[in-house]
């Protein structure tokens, strides 16, 4: 069940989002960011708050298929959008290939930047702009990792890209 804000003095705006395939209707104040909506209203806490300023990438989610910093998105402005969070990519028993690659490569330590890294990496592969290791690193630079798992993250992404390329070749 969706929770709505019902407080005096607050202008509430209706918002409909499709989050991980599920339609969610809420009434929120315009000041609510997509990040806080996900974490505090929908209890989808896989999307992390590291800086709340677009300076770390921990809140990266896919909005209409594009990776964005959820902390800088006012939720009202995303009315009608499709949102995919880390919870929508896979489950512990059925990991998305990128999630599996992160586990296989030990591409995280504390795990806090990890959902953002994975969402960002999934989008990176879909964007198709990164072909070399340098390009992977550059186009992942909006996701900081204080545990310093960068080389393992790059390796995990490389694995998924190689796997996707291999699968494509096999299909052709």
């Amino acid at each position: 069940m969706d929770q709505n804000d019902r407080r005096p003095g607050a202008e509430l705006v209706p918002v409909t989002l499709v989050v991980n395939g599920e339609t969610r209707r809420l009434e929120i104040e315009p000041a609510v960011t997509l990040l806080d909506l996900l974490r505090e209203r929908l209890h989808l806490t896989g999307t992390k708050k590291g800086c709340d300023q677009g300076q770390c990438g921990a809140c990266t989610v896919l909005v209409d298929g594009r990776r964005v910093n959820a902390c800088l998105q006012l939720a009202v402005m995303r009315d009608g959008c499709d949102v995919v969070t880390i919870e929508g990519l896979g489950t512990p028993d059925d990991l998305h290939p990128m999630q599996a690659a992160f586990v296989a490569r030990d591409a995280f330590q504390c795990g806090y930047c990890t959902p953002g890294q994975i969402c960002s990496a999934v989008a990176l592969v879909a964007e198709g702009q990164a072909r070399t290791p340098d390009e992977i690193r550059e186009l992942m630079s909006g996701n900081l990792c204080r545990c310093g798992a960068y080389s393992n993250i790059a390796a995990a992404i490389g694995d998924v890209m190689a796997g996707a390329a291999g699968a494509k070749e096999a299909a052709e």
Partner: peptide, 23 residues
Amino acid sequence: RPQPRVDGPLKVTGRARYAAEVA
């Protein structure tokens, strides 16, 4: 031996709950 993290699946799926994530 290089054992994958046992808490890995929770962390990569966003199911690991941190201090501010208890509802």
